[in-house]
Amino acid sequence: MKYLALALLFSTSLMAASPEVVQYMKELESVAKTENRTFNGFDAVRGKEIFTSTHTGKQGKPMACTSCHSLNLANPGKNSLTGKVIDPLSPRANPQRLTSAKEVKKWLKRNFMDVYAREGTAQEKGDVLTYIMKN
């Protein structure tokens, strides 16, 4: 039992996400499979593109995730509207990240709306999370 707990701890630290966030990603994966027949797993490269590209946001103005989060995920960002500092997104730089599935769901929904003016697909959300986990 002890070893199981240790192994679990080790594997989650490798994955840079808590068990509940890993579980949420599994849910996203099964939805992605039904929405896209050619889906072959989440991809950090696609995630990076989603994260760094500019789109017409909710306000009808050019917007990217990096308008508020820094390009280097280990650095803090800054809310472009209020100026409030945003803690780093990288789970390595900020151990609080990707620990709560509730937080992850909330921010993915909000920020896809802000940047893409639509809620992201399961595949897009999984890709972005995969990108964040690897940085």
Binding site: K58, L81, K102, R110, M113, D114
Partner: peptide, 12 residues
């Protein structure tokens, strides 16, 4: 809150 001063601030 879905359009909170130009940003999505929805809660569960």
């Amino acid at each position: 809150l879905d359009n909170h001063f130009g940003t999505d601030a929805t809660l569960d």
